[in-house]
């Protein structure tokens, strides 16, 4: 019973999200609102401004280099978080063992 209620709920959510997605402009290419003046600037000017023919590389490490810096900091933080969770397990047991004995 609960299973079927959940399935119906998810189907309704799917219909709702599909309806809202169908209101978007579809694959209309260059007329799409996402293809705005920033994109035109990147495509037309990036070779003169950065010298790299790969537009993605020039956006990633020149126009939005701070974004990539934040990305590397996210990776660094994830390592610190994982190590801080997994490392200290051995220490409390070692400290407890002498007090118990």
């Amino acid at each position: 019973m609960r299973k079927w209620a959940l399935r119906i709920l998810f189907f309704m959510l799917f219909m709702l999200m599909s309806y809202s997605v169908l209101q978007m402009p579809g694959d209309i290419g260059l007329d799409s609102p996402a293809y705005n003046e920033a994109t035109h600037h990147y495509i037309e000017e990036s070779l003169g401004e950065t010298g790299a023919i790969n537009i993605i590389a020039s956006i990633l490490t020149d126009y939005r280099a701070f974004d990539t810096l934040g990305e590397t900091i996210v990776l660094f933080t994830s390592i610190i978080a994982v190590i801080s969770i997994l490392r200290p397990s051995a220490k409390p047991e070692e400290e407890e063992a002498p007090t118990d004995g």
Binding site: G51, A52, I53, A57, S58, T61, D62, T68, T72, L75
Partner: peptide, 15 residues
Amino acid sequence: SGGMIPLLMIGVGIK
């Protein structure tokens, strides 16, 4: 080519 772009790519790749 690309000025600092290859250098930054090397740093990101190592990381």
